[in-house]
């Protein structure tokens, strides 16, 4: 099985290049995921660098660009991929080394969304009640694993990563706006009411298309906009 992988080591390379790798057919097993293959390729060359941890799509470490589309290597079946499999780091993020990108800005925008529950009412001794319907509003929002596939697939985020929060951070914003327990909705909407932070989304839906968890950031962003609109009338 043939691979073409983006290589760059800032200590030795003046420019990035694509390197060919071959995984022997004897090593390819049915049901193998792309990450399994990468781990075997790393045995051929221990300098091949990528992040990984849980191996089943919940930690969000191994996002990368796979044959032109962002995804998680650990839940990407090898058999579904056209060869040679072309692997690149996320587009639009600074490359640290090989498939590893600098996600500082991505995390910064996440923090900008103030992704924490705010409720300053006196705490009850037990749980705050929430109806199953209200809790249901969080489905499709809270499951985000911060892998970055969506924001790294978003042209608006590529052009304005410092000013547009990006789909991942906006999904978080929506998660707390929707939470019936949160008391900071007004403050959250105010912070988002900005030509760039929220409104740079042009609804091209790349985020939704690539999300490995099947979430829909584009819809969440649309919902925030609608809430915003309602508030202004």
């Amino acid at each position: 099985m043939e691979f073409s992988i983006y290589r760059f080591n800032p200590e030795t390379d003046s420019a990035p290049y694509m390197q060919d790798f071959t995984l022997g057919d004897d090593l390819v097993e049915p049901g193998m995921m792309l990450l399994d293959a990468l781990l075997l390729l790393k045995e051929q060359d221990d300098s091949l660098s990528f992040r990984r941890s849980c191996q089943h799509g919940v930690c969000g470490s191994d996002g990368m660009n796979i044959n032109g589309t962002n995804g998680l290597a650990c839940i990407m079946p090898l058999k579904d991929l056209k060869t040679p499999i072309v692997l690149r780091p996320f587009p639009g993020m600074p490359v640290i080394r090989d498939l590893i990108v600098d996600m500082d800005n991505f995390y910064h925008q996440y923090r900008e969304a103030e992704p924490w529950l705010v409720n300053d009412s006196p705490e009850p001794e037990v749980e705050r009640l929430q109806s199953p319907e209200d809790r249901g509003q969080l489905d499709g929002l809270y499951e985000c694993i911060l892998c970055g596939c969506c924001s790294a697939a978003c042209p608006s985020y590529w052009w304005n990563p410092d000013r547009f929060l990006g789909p991942a951070a906006l999904l978080q914003a929506a998660r707390f706006i929707q939470d019936s327990r949160d008391e900071a909705t007004e403050h959250r909407l105010e912070r988002l009411d900005d030509a760039y932070r929220l409104y740079r989304c042009h609804g091209i839906m790349n985020c939704t298309q690539v999300c490995p968890k099947g979430l829909n950031p584009a819809k969440a962003i649309g919902d925030i906009r609608r809430t915003m609109l309602k508030r202004s009338v």
Binding site: N119, E125, L129, Q130, P132, R135, R181
Partner: peptide
């Protein structure tokens, strides 16, 4: 567990909201 709920953990809920 109650503390977690106050921290914002999105626990699944029963009919009464518990």
């Amino acid at each position: 567990v109650y503390e977690l709920e106050h921290f914002g953990v999105p626990f699944s809920r029963l009919e009464e909201g518990n």
